[in-house]
């Protein structure tokens, strides 16, 4: 099969760039730890979520200095982010928050615009992502996977003070 000299050059440059690129995302994922939300963290019966720890106590819990765990239950069409007496999540600026989220019904999304927090919530699985909120503000948390008639109303907030 005859391949023109210029085409060989073109392909060589393209393929070399491709492997450099794959190397960069591979190193960033496996050596530097910026991995996409993955794994079976643990599996959970989606019909009994509210009885199983940690989802029996949803809300934001301090686990260290400026470090929090946010346990959130998603449902059509909202998120449970705390007990009735303190439903809104608040953290001080500079806090690192570990989000632990699952769904009690259909597939939902979990996205905080302006950050890299973006993951799928699949019934039966627990999704986890970590983010450090450096700046103050009212961060919007929205469902970005179609989940039914009022999908566009499915949202919550996290307030960084």
């Amino acid at each position: 099969m005859h391949i023109h000299r210029l085409e060989k050059v073109w392909l060589a440059i393209g393929i070399a760039m491709l492997f450099v690129f794959l190397g960069v995302i591979g190193i960033s994922a496996f050596a530097l730890g910026t991995q996409p939300p993955s794994e079976h963290h643990h599996m959970i019966d989606p019909t009994k979520v509210k009885e199983i720890a940690p989802f029996d106590q949803p809300g934001i819990h301090q686990v260290g200095r400026k470090e929090y765990e946010a346990v959130i239950i998603s449902f059509a069409f909202g998120y449970t982010t705390g007990p009735k007496e303190q439903p809104v999540m608040k953290v001080p600026a500079g806090s690192t928050v570990h989000f632990t989220v699952t769904s009690t019904d259909v597939v939902h999304g979990f996205e905080i615009p302006g950050t890299n927090v973006n993951m799928m919530l699949v019934p039966g699985e627990v999704s986890q992502v970590t983010h450090t909120f450096k700046e103050k503000g009212e961060y919007l948390i929205l469902c970005n996977e179609y989940c039914g008639i009022a999908h566009e109303a499915m949202m919550t907030k996290i307030i960084v003070e």
Partner: peptide, 13 residues
């Protein structure tokens, strides 16, 4: 399916 649980990072990569 990169942003979903249930698949290990190695197989995604």
């Amino acid at each position: 399916q990169l942003m979903e649980p249930g698949v290990s990072p190695l197989w995604k990569y």
